[in-house]
Design a protein around this nucleic acid. Structure first.
Lengths: 166, 166
DNA sequence: GGCGTCATGGCCGAAATCCGCCAGTGACGC
DNA sequence: GCGTCACTGGCGGATTTCGGCCATGACGCC
């Protein structure tokens, strides 16, 4: 049984989904409006806003600038490689950026694997919560974001990682 | 949409299924009680006895010995090879038997293909209507029948192809 | 700076391949 | 007559292979 709700954010209405586990609700996805690869809402999903109270509270604090690190249970999905990359994402500090190549090197991969890292990051179902927006191209360009490059720029600006006028 | 009904016969309750086509109902399967490989009744099927009136009438006449050849529309299913074998089945005359090897030879197959013919006959979804019961082993043994060997014997006896005491 | 090209790793869906199953038959030995 | 064996054709599910795709990066060239 898939649960879902929506959350009104400065970036628009976010769609959150989760599954119930033995220890409570595990978040499965957070998607932005018009997001590429966003999960399609299905009739079998159940609208359960109360289950997402903790997530909504932390998102509120994040968008107001008062929360720098999420503490929420995530559902484990993805291939082994994707999980490894996503774990590295969760360790990225607030307000900083890194590049696909650096993140790949930190994981001990050959330089040619950087593109595979990009593909794995692009498959991250938990936008914002797993801060894939903190990974940019080696030239400093934002290069890509499933939720759209403007959203990536807005998130990095909120975190103070970009000059507002840049 | 799959339609179905049951028909009370001397061999027990037969399950008939069919699909509606542009020209009317096409029969998809006829299975005996406890038949191996019988289609499993699904909730999505619709019980529609009236659609099977013609089939029921001809089955009545067949079991009373008054009808020797069915004239009903069949749904086309199966692989090309199976369709070829099934077409040969429909040409088998009432009251006679042939062997898997003979039927294979009539279709121009090498002797080693007889076993494949047996497998194709075993996949026939329209028991009785397509008279797969008229095909027996080269030694005269009945060898096999999805509806059970007793049913095969009963059908051949009804058709006068076997001595009742054999 | 921008643009095209190339190499490489991982992933996914489609196609190809492999494998086990079978309602047979004829040949052999008992 | 009866068990055993080898042999083959077709089928379906499982497995494997293959080709394309990508949120990269380095290089060479304007």
């Amino acid at each position: 049984m898939r649960l879902y709700t929506t959350f009104d954010s400065p970036l628009g209405a976010l769609l959150l989904t989760g599954v119930r586990t033995e220890t409570g609700l595990a978040l499965a996805s957070l998607s932005l409006p018009d997001q590429r690869n966003a999960p399609a809402r299905a009739d079998t999903w159940r609208h359960a806003p109360a289950e997402f109270a903790a997530a909504a509270s932390q998102l509120d604090a994040y968008f107001s600038g008062g929360l720098k690190e999420f503490d929420l249970p995530f559902a484990t999905t993805g291939t082994p490689f994707q999980r490894q990359v996503w774990a590295a994402l969760e360790a990225l500090p607030y307000g900083a950026t890194t590049t696909y190549g650096e993140l790949n090197a930190a994981l001990g991969g050959t330089p040619a694997r950087a593109r595979a890292v990009g593909a794995a990051i692009g498959a991250n179902p938990l936008l914002i919560l797993r801060p894939c927006h903190r990974v940019i191209g080696s030239t400093g360009a934002l290069t890509g974001y499933a939720g759209g490059l403007p959203a990536k720029q807005a998130l990095l600006t909120l975190e103070g990682a970009l000059l507002p006028t840049s």
